[in-house]
Design a protein around this nucleic acid. Structure first.
Lengths: 346, 346
DNA sequence: AGAAAAACTGTAATCGATTACATTTTCACT
DNA sequence: AGTGAAAATGTAATCGATTACAGTTTTTCT
């Protein structure tokens, strides 16, 4: 129990100051505002820093400077590859500006929200990025109490007055319908996401608008309920298979459901795209490795993250709060692959 | 520029103390060691805390208490779904113990390593979890300087004297060969990972050992080089297709390569599993959605993360450093699906 | 050269909690 | 009731940096 060397504590600023023969203030300035020092002084300090391997204590720095250089990213489900890509974009941008990433995983429940609010309230982070399309209960208050800026990425939050970055979901959905119609499809179906989800609402709205634009009666189209999972796609497939006058063009609100659908209908002997064309949404990596490869809309995941982070960094660097927060909408290109083709004749 | 209310600062411990009519020490104890207070006092303090919505400042607490309740997780590539699952397990365990997750994404390069070392050296985290199978240059020194515990998860780090959690890669690979042999396959191939990777080494060793166990001459088997990517699987497929006396049983060091391989050989008219059986490794979600569905070994990703985190928590709670650090190896069950079958006759 | 301005550097207060040590209160027991 | 031990609470030092303000040195300009 006595293999402790007694003073294992790491170097402090005072040690550097002493070694360099300057005050702690000068050391601090050497590290945070080097331009303020004479070149000779700076060199002397830096040499001392290097020689004893000094790194400023982050807690002390945060306490005094009132900022932590940390950003909280609220993720609905960290195990979802989609968010992994977005996180990557966020990480790129933030780390380029010296910020670190604190992960707040909601694990698909709301139980952890109070904990996240504590993180904000305790001043542990300088800013927040929401990927979950909902402002956790009470977070807004904490944010305004502490003056912590926030941005929403991926899922727009209706009526919010902070910056947001999302995809052109509605526009893409309209294009999906137009694309299928151009291939000759008239009996269309939509595999939906959970009703309370913003993305779902936007995509559904786009689907319906697309129908209108093509002059197709809404009652002629089917909407299969779903929840963004493979299983939901498979369930939708069952409904599809047992329906009279099956649709020939199917647009799923995300790739997982599209793939689940694909798998199930093919297992039942339906040929894709000969009998039915399938369009997904998201552009996940595996969409290109299923059979047939999936036509889908490729979301700019990394770019979503990057731009969201950029907006936050801007807010953090104290740019006077613009009167109206920017709402960026990135385009979502259609990637045509083998799951879509001309409508069957008759 | 004057919409600041002047004193926007959030409540401090002194405010609570005053309201409750006690000293700051008592408030602090109410929050960190409630058992130490009389019930009446505790209640009074807690009520005061609640009524003004006090949350302790994390920086101040960390500075004085010398711990941050934060753990650094070093991830080789945050966009990789595999790690996303591991992260989930880590998060579950850590957050259950009050620890937060700081992400250190290496983004597949080594450029960021110095930054990560800074995080440790500056006392920003209490512990480190490595998912990248390598101790970043100089980190070991920082760890011992600061006394920060560390554990490695997923990829064992040879010769390291800290706790580790990995999978039984070698055992699984042996089983892969045995399984194929049992199906009648004698001409086998292995799609390898990058040579400097620990997992690759273990799986390759298992493959070779499996051959020996089955009495198959090593020269009779093929080893296709690879790097864990889809593309590598496709490349391997080309080599496979142009080889005389094609192997009939293929074991890939991960699922991505197995899937790339599958896709390419089928495109060339080879039937799976009639002409060739394919076994993957990892058990990624999509292995069940390709065609044919992929026989693979399902890594206990979440459990790897969870147990790794548990080991770290143990180390953090000051359990006297056991003389020898535990090296846990979790079993990797074989999941038989449709990509494997009896060897073709002749 | 000398004065004023500009650039540097130092002193010491400060951020907001935790905690060693001192003091007071409570409790059990004779 | 009186005593000592145990429990609860208070006082004030402390963690390690940043930064306002003051003081010193250098530069610029006449």
């Amino acid at each position: 129990m006595d293999d402790e060397t007694g003073d294992r504590r790491t170097a402090r600023i005072a040690d550097v100051a002493q070694l360099a023969g300057v005050s702690t203030a000068t050391v601090s300035r050497a590290l945070t505002a080097p331009g303020q020092l004479r070149a000779a002084t700076l060199a002397r300090v830096m040499e001392a820093v290097r020689s004893i391997g000094y790194t400023p204590n982050v807690a002390a720095r945060s306490l005094r400077a009132r900022r932590t250089m940390l950003v909280l990213v609220v993720v609905p489900d960290i195990a979802n590859p989609f968010f992994a890509d977005v996180l990557r974009g966020i990480d790129e941008e933030l780390s380029a500006h010296g910020y670190g990433l604190l992960i707040g995983n909601l694990a698909r429940t709301r139980k952890k929200e109070p904990q996240l609010i504590g993180i904000v309230q305790s001043g542990q982070v300088d800013g927040v990025i929401l990927l979950n399309g909902r402002v956790p209960e009470g977070l807004d208050r904490s944010m305004s109490d502490t003056g912590t800026p926030m941005v929403a990425v991926c899922e727009a939050i209706p009526g919010a007055n902070f910056p947001q970055v999302g995809a052109q979901n509605r526009e893409a959905a309209i294009e999906a319908v137009a694309y299928l119609v151009a291939l000759g499809h008239r009996r269309l179906a939509y595999v939906a996401g959970p009703k309370d989800n913003v993305l779902e609402r936007e995509r559904r709205a786009g689907f319906l608008q697309g129908l209108r634009a093509a002059g197709i009666d809404r009652r002629q189209a089917s909407i299969y309920p779903g929840d963004f999972t493979f299983a939901a796609g498979e369930t939708a497939a069952q409904t599809f298979l047992s329906s009279p006058g099956r649709p020939t063009g199917v647009f799923a609100a995300n790739d997982e459901m599209a793939i689940g659908f694909l798998k199930s209908v093919r297992a039942a002997g339906v040929s894709v795209p000969r009998d039915v064309s399938v369009v997904g949404f998201d552009g996940i990596a595996f969409a290109d490795y299923v059979e047939p490869t999936l036509t889908t809309f490729r979301q700019p995941r990394r770019e979503l993250g990057r731009q969201g982070a950029a907006l936050l960094v801007e807010a953090l660097s104290g740019a006077a709060t613009a009167t109206d927060a920017p709402h960026i909408r990135l385009p979502v290109p259609l990637v045509v692959r083998d799951s879509t083709g001309p409508a069957p004749v008759g």
